[in-house]
Amino acid sequence: MKIRVVQRHGTALKDRLYLPAIWQGLKITATHLLKNVGDIKSVDVLEYPEEQPSDITNRYRGLHRLTHREDGSVRCVACYMCATACPAGCIFIEAAERTDGVDEKMPSRFAIDTLECVFCGYCVEACPCDAIRMDTGIFSLIGSRREDFVLEKEQLLAHKGAFDE
């Protein structure tokens, strides 16, 4: 049977005194403080809203948008897959007969309640037609009433993708 002796930390006098450790911690914080006070520009901080974030990639899940086909018609066929997959239950779809003859169904009402949305991206994964995407890169939605945060079909169709396909 092999015996392994484990060194216990914190039993030396220097550790139990606690003051040397406090002194080392104070040195670190004091260096940071003096460096940043001496030159405020050494603080790596984003001056929002004058500077916008520069690290929005094409994987970033921003606000949703509904996509169009090449001929300009709405891709969405109101199959309810996204509404079913949504864990927050924030997608409200009402189907209607398609008028431009491309497919059978299209949504007459497609609403997303962004106050309930958790921006998980399950709707994008569930959609079989690549109709809903979250690549607008919009991270800030402002409104003054609760109703402003429910995005209707027209608003969702109007959002543009921020990246190339």
Binding site: T29, H32, L33, N36, V37, I40, V43, D44, V45
Partner: peptide, 10 residues
Amino acid sequence: RIAGLIQDRV
């Protein structure tokens, strides 16, 4: 302010 400057933020 000091809390911010110690934590590398303003």
